[in-house]
Simulated assay, not measured.
Amino acid sequence: MAASARGEGAPAPARWKKIKAARAADLAVPGDDDDTPLPEAAGDDPPEAVVLRLAGGGRFPDAVKVLAYALPKREAVWWACLAARHSQQTVGASAAAVACVEAAEAWVYKPVEERRQACYRIVESKRPDNPAALTALAAAWSGGSLVPPDAPDEVPAVPPDESLTARTVANAIIMAAVMHDPAQAPARFRRFLAQGRDIAEGGTGAIDAAAAPP
């Protein structure tokens, strides 16, 4: 099945260091309907092949989604940080949005519970209507509990779904690409996917001087 999806006899792309899933189907990437998988990511091809094929066909949001689900949580959140930072450099940002990205970056540098909770606190009173807030949420939902950190002790913990960070990262990156000047969205998607690929290959996403290492 994998050979036919790539084209008979076409070589498989080299594996990307940070992606552990052997088959895209193992990621359970949702399609437009959250209850059904993305058809292009439901087969035996490795995630790398699916990302490249979707991006090559101009299916940028779906390519972002597959890569967000394929990356480990820490690397995925870093990817969203880069996209949010680029969006802020392009159109400016409020102090609150900058603080959201800084909190997420701090969690990437040291992904401990205290910093995860800091991401939750900084975003819980804000509307997640921008890439920065979604990025902080992606870090906040990386583990622990969905219950706010300051909730009474008698409130039981609610572990987040394992896919919640990936879903939120994908939404953050897609929003960063399309929310300002949609005519530039394809160029932004290509930039973000190049950064995501570099991260997946073990790099920092620093495709230019604007990106700093985690």
Rank of each mutant, 00 (worst) to 15 (best):
S87Y: 13
V108D: 05
V108H: 07
Y69M: 02
E105T: 12
D161L: 08
P111I: 02
E75W: 00
V123L: 04
G92I: 08
S87N: 12
A97N: 02
P148T: 08
W78L: 15
P148S: 09
T90Q: 15
R85T: 13
V123F: 06
A96S: 13
T90Y: 13
R85H: 11
L71Y: 02
P152C: 04
A136S: 13
A99V: 02
S87M: 12
H86D: 15
Q88E: 15
A133M: 06
P156L: 09
G92C: 13
V91H: 15
P160T: 06
P72F: 01
C100E: 13
L164S: 12
K126V: 03
V155Y: 10
D150R: 09
P159G: 02
P128C: 01
L71P: 05
W107H: 00
V101P: 09
L137H: 11
C81M: 04
E114G: 14
K110H: 11
A132D: 07
L71G: 03
R121S: 14
A132W: 04
V108G: 08
V123T: 12
L137F: 11
A84P: 10
V77Q: 03
V101W: 06
P156D: 11
P156E: 12
Y109S: 11
L137V: 11
P131K: 08
A132R: 04
C119T: 02
A76P: 06
R116M: 03
S142M: 01
D153F: 11
P159H: 05
A83Q: 03
P160R: 05
W78I: 00
R127W: 11
E102Y: 01
A136K: 07
E105Y: 01
A99K: 13
W79E: 01
L71F: 05
R121Q: 12
A68L: 07
S125T: 15
V101G: 07
R116G: 00
D150A: 12
V147Q: 10
R127Q: 12
G144W: 05
V147H: 04
G92N: 12
A136F: 09
V123D: 07
E113A: 14
A138Q: 10
E124M: 12
V112G: 13
K126L: 15
K110W: 07
K126E: 12
P152S: 06
E162Q: 11
R74P: 04
P148A: 09
A132P: 07
A103L: 04
D129S: 14
Y109T: 14
P72H: 01
D153A: 15
P131I: 08
A84T: 01
Y120I: 00
A151G: 05
